[in-house]
Design a binder for these strands. Structure first.
Lengths: 150, 150
DNA sequence: GTCAGGCTTCAGGTGGAGTTCAAGTTGTGA
DNA sequence: TCACAACTTGAACTCCACCTGAAGCCTGAC
């Protein structure tokens, strides 16, 4: 419609790899799993939308947070692959991820604070820190995850 | 020396599994890797120190934060396996983990904020959020990781 | 037109983190 | 004392997330 640069300036897989830092093999793999999509040239080469770069970066970020490709795929599948954005869907997805992210943050903070407190008391509690948590107190609480678990 | 309960009330692998939520197969695997240790009964069955429960929980927590068993093993190897605590060693280890944990937290917060901002602007930026980040702005910055990367 | 270099598919390999299996041994409550 | 659950080992197997290599096709600069 408008003049100037094309609306879908297609990128080769190599260009996407270079710009995102994700290997081409990984991009093909992700495409196979349905996390990203591509058009093909008449010669069967992949051409990606510029928006794919954001998507790819997003996937990487989500991965680093501990989400599996499956989970990410499920989440992304609800997003505007084709047409209607459905801001409601987006908000719902976003909320559920947010919960997960918050949990993750708390989990890490807990671990960090544990470390801090151990430095603080100088007792190297990993073995037996009677001050912060005597063994017997733990034992009395019966089976199940202990301490660092949520 | 003292009377009363033994100082090292040994737990079977099944008990440790039950109390930590970690499968026995995983516990054996971790032991093989040197992350935990055990005594043996005359009949060759493993017996764990109660402190192992804390150690196991710690390992799980560290794993959830994205550390590999190798990294965890390296870290734990510096801890009082046998004798002198060396509070200095502990502090050093702890500091390096702390840095890592802080980075992790920031990484997650970044992802979370991205989600929030996308809800905020209602533009579903994963495709093309012109408001928060027009494609051209990104394209002009040349190759390399974009946006969500640190 | 030609040719390097980027792209294609497909098969097979890798590494991390376990799980499962089989066959045999130990521990314990009745 | 005996049954039976829990334990032992080693090897093989699984799953995930890719990576590597081979053999051949596309594309763009000269």
């Amino acid at each position: 419609m408008a003049h100037g640069t094309t609306l879908h300036p297609t990128l080769s897989i190599g260009q996407v790899a270079e710009r995102t830092g994700v290997a081409t093999s990984a991009l093909r793999y992700w495409e196979e799993l349905g996390l990203i999509t591509s058009d093909r040239t008449t010669g069967n080469q992949r051409r990606y939308d510029r928006a794919t770069i954001r998507r790819v970066s997003f996937i990487r970020a989500a991965q680093r947070v501990g989400l599996s490709l499956d989970e990410i795929a499920t989440a992304l599948a609800r997003l505007p692959q084709s047409r209607t954005p459905t801001a409601g869907d987006w908000a719902r997805l976003s909320r559920s991820w947010r919960r997960r992210l918050d949990e993750q943050i708390h989990s890490i903070e807990r671990l960090r604070d544990q470390l801090d407190s151990c430095i603080g008391c100088g007792c190297l509690s990993l073995r037996t820190c009677a001050l912060s948590n005597p063994d017997d107190t733990l034992a009395a609480r019966g089976p199940g995850p202990v301490l660092l678990e949520p």
